[in-house]
Design a protein around this nucleic acid. Structure first.
Length: 520
RNA sequence: GGGCUGCUAGCUCAAUGGCAGAGCUGCGGACUUUUAAUCCGUAGGUUCAGGGUUCGAGUCCCUGGCGGCCCA
């Protein structure tokens, strides 16, 4: 009874306190922290009490760990180099003995160097401070002589050390993999702990740089076009909607840069590309992210055959940038050969093979429905024959397309921005590139006739009016641009995240540094 | 959208419906050549949340939350 009354009083006090300190948190929450976090906070406080900085403004380094390793990699076992150095890194591994302490420091580039603190070199006080105040995960700076230990480990034998940033949270156990969710939600920790995570960041940068270099070498100009758009178009996808207060109008996050890049070509930028983010308000799973990086490139006086050559070269150049050859290696150790010419098939050709029955763009809707039923592919009655053929293709053929394969010539019905096929009516000059069973890229001989384009877009906008959220809106300004004369051109698009997947075998959530996750 | 499955200590994971545990991490101690150091001692829990069944629930049932896998 008494207890509960005390609890009530305490509750009132706590409530009052909370209200009072709402704007200055942290301090009063310490009671609830796990032991290890409390201890680290205490060490931070102890540093301050002793007049030392837990977060000094800097640390004068004489060399990076990588430089020390490069210079003294060959230093024989148990040797003093004579060189004094000052290095900094994160403590990732610590071994303290009575009068000699070891720690492994890791720099941001992943290079590591052992620090040694011996009683006779660094002194009793500094050694005691080290053992008392340094935890796994802390950033420290160490000054001393570059030596090798008796076991041959390149080390810095400290004359002095200094905390450069005290870590208040313990690192996860380095030798057990973090759960996938923790890796994605706290990528910064993943990067600290897992070399592969850091490697993936570098790999991605290498690939993107390679794409830019290849395109620059081919005289393509890089541009940046709007992310915020008044109308949504350039692809069939559901957009995110946002709002401009200044214009008091809704805006769309772009689903594709296509229509703006083509405006560039109208204006005379005959080879143009953009590498940037697109946003699609659709499913989120291991192969789909709502925001994804995309390369699109357009070239005047090229067609979809030229774009196939370009795409293959871009991918092969990226492979060379990574491995020096056209063969890439996946994390599971398997190799994947992207070299040589790539298989080129037609949509209706491979579909006919898979169905065991000839189909063309002229095959009636009812016949396709019949074939779908025969092959256990469920269909939506709203789909036209073109869409139906594509769905059958995706279900029956795509999973088997492991080696890079260009699939040519799609039905007009599903490709409103594509030029009509030069030979076969009702087909368009479009290919999709498949690798490892997923779509890596696409290209068209672009539709440049403004009259035909208007008909197609009007049809799309009618679909949109009927409630198809994927359908494009009628973009009058784009049509106006076309009416000034759009040269014949080829255009291609390739997902950067997908390209990384193809080159590394990783899941999309590993190729994206900070993928969107549900709020915790 | 459907099916399956997971959520337990800072991290990775155990625990027939019957005392909630291990390894690493942490803390205290020993150790001047360690490499996931070793040795001795020790602490650490709202078992995702809420409800139900039961003498008794981490475990069984229901609802919800957050993941993962498979399918559409």
């Amino acid at each position: 009874m008494l207890l509960s009354r005390l609890d009530v009083i305490r509750g009132i006090l706590v409530e009052g306190l909370c209200a009072a300190v709402k704007d200055q948190p942290a301090v009063d929450q310490e009671l609830d922290l796990p032991e290890q976090m409390k201890i680290r906070r205490e060490k931070r406080a102890r540093l301050l009490d002793e007049g030392k900085q837990p977060y000094p403004v800097g640390f004068e380094r004489s060399a990076t760990i990588a430089e020390i390793r490069a210079r003294y990699g060959e230093l024989p076992t148990d040797t003093a180099s004579g060189e004094q150095a000052a290095v900094a890194g994160r403590v990732i591994f610590i071994r303290n003995t009575g009068k000699l302490a070891f720690a492994t420091l890791r720099a941001g580039d992943g290079t590591e160097l052992q620090a040694m603190l011996s009683l006779d070199k660094v002194g009793a006080e500094a050694l005691e401070d080290w053992k008392r105040l340094v935890d796994l995960g802390d950033h420290v700076g160490v000054r001393g002589e570059v030596i090798t230990s008796r076991r041959g480990e390149l080390s810095i034998l400290a004359d002095a050390w200094q905390m450069t940033a005290k870590a208040l949270r313990p690192l996860p156990v380095a030798h057990k993999p973090m759960g996938e969710e923790a890796r994605v939600r706290q990528r910064y920790v993943d990067l600290v702990v897992r070399p592969q995570a850091r490697e993936t960041v570098r790999t991605r940068a290498t690939v993107v740089r390679s794409l830019r270099n290849s395109l620059h070498d081919l005289d393509y100009l890089e541009v940046e076009t709007p992310m915020l758009q008044l109308l949504h178009g350039g692809a069939a996808a559901r957009p995110f909607v946002t709002h401009s207060n200044a214009l008091d109008t809704d805006l769309y996050l772009r689903i594709a840069p296509e229509l703006f890049l083509k405006r560039c070509v109208v204006g005379g930028i005959e080879r143009v590309f953009e590498i940037n983010r697109n946003f699609r308000n659709e499913g989120i799973d291991s192969s789909h992210s709502p925001e994804f990086a995309m390369l699109e490139a357009y070239q005047a006086y090229a067609d979809y055959n030229d774009m196939a050559d370009l795409t293959r070269q871009l991918v092969q150049d990226a492979a060379v940038a990574l491995t020096g050859t056209h063969v890439v290696r996946y994390a599971d150790g398997s190799e994947f050969d992207l070299g040589g010419q790539w298989r080129r098939v037609t949509l209706y050709g491979v579909l006919s093979e898979a169905l065991g029955s000839d189909v063309t763009v002229e095959t009636p809707h009812a016949r396709l429905v019949e074939l779908a039923a025969k092959h256990d592919v469920s269909v939506d009655p709203k789909w036209g024959p073109g869409k139906l053929a594509e769905e059958l293709f995706e279900a029956l053929v795509v999973p088997g397309l492991v080696a890079p394969t260009f699939v040519f010539d799609y039905p007009e019905e599903t490709s409103p921005l594509t030029r009509a096929h030069r030979v076969t009516p009702r087909l368009t000059e479009k290919w999709d590139l498949y690798v490892q069973g997923f779509e890596l890229g696409t290209a068209y001989s672009e539709l440049v006739d403004p009259v035909v384009q208007r008909e197609r877009l009007v049809a799309q906008s009618l679909l949109a009016a009927k409630g198809d959220p994927d359908a494009m809106q009628l973009d009058e300004d784009y049509l106006r641009a076309m009416e000034y004369g759009m040269p014949p051109m080829g255009g291609m698009g390739m997902g950067i995240d997908r390209l990384l997947m193809a080159l590394t075998g990783l899941g999309i959530r590993e190729t994206i540094l900070f993928p969107l996750v549900r709020p915790e």
